[in-house]
């Protein structure tokens, strides 16, 4: 079936099997392999992209469900020669090792800061009715949907904290 997606600002036509996940559409059809497949079941976060500004697991949604949606992938955030502030902070703080979870971490972190700006609470927020401060614990909780087996977590928190400030 035919689906039109706006990927990183560019309209892309997808003519594919209805079974194609958004992740597989990006990786196999649009050759945007920055979004990673770590588990294909929403259990690792490596496939995180932003759809209409919100972070989601692109493995757990069908491409055909996103006709007309705006998709932002890691490739849309910055390029090696022109990194986004979050990408740059990940490099400087060594917020990765193998790099496989990294695009998902960065997409997740970028969108997570918007959620925090909007005043969304998290499970570690003491007072649900106030605007939460983005403490290290808050960052960690909000980033817990992105596994990193190399376990760069403390560096990831450092990078995000710096960008948030």
């Amino acid at each position: 079936m035919k689906t039109t997606l706006k990927v990183n600002g560019e309209e892309r036509e997808l003519e594919a099997d209805s079974r194609v996940s958004l992740l597989d559409a990006l990786r196999n059809h649009f050759r945007l392999t920055g979004s990673k497949k770590g588990c294909d079941h929403g259990q690792c976060g490596a496939c995180t992209v932003m759809v209409n500004g919100r972070r989601i697991n692109s493995c757990l949604t069908l491409a055909c469900m996103h006709d007309g949606d705006e998709i932002t992938t890691i490739e849309g955030l910055g390029t090696p020669g022109s990194l986004s502030p979050m990408q740059d902070a990940f490099v400087r703080h060594d917020g990765y090792q193998c790099g496989y979870c990294t695009p998902g971490q960065i997409c997740s972190a970028t969108a997570m800061l918007e959620e925090a700006k909007a005043g969304w609470p998290s499970v570690v927020t003491e007072d649900l009715e106030s605007r939460p401060d983005l403490t290290d614990e808050e960052i960690s909780e909000r980033m817990s949907g992105n596994l990193c087996r190399c376990a760069a977590y403390p560096n990831i928190v450092d990078a995000i904290r710096e960008v948030a400030e």
């Binding site: 392999t33 890691i74 990408q87 990940f90 960065i106």
Partner: peptide, 21 residues
């Protein structure tokens, strides 16, 4: 020092096994 491969990794352009075209 920062990793020289860092900019490729953080921009999703470092190719892993299944990603060669």
């Amino acid at each position: 020092l920062d990793r020289p491969d860092g900019p490729l990794k953080v921009s999703g352009t470092a190719p892993y096994a299944a990603e060669y075209e």
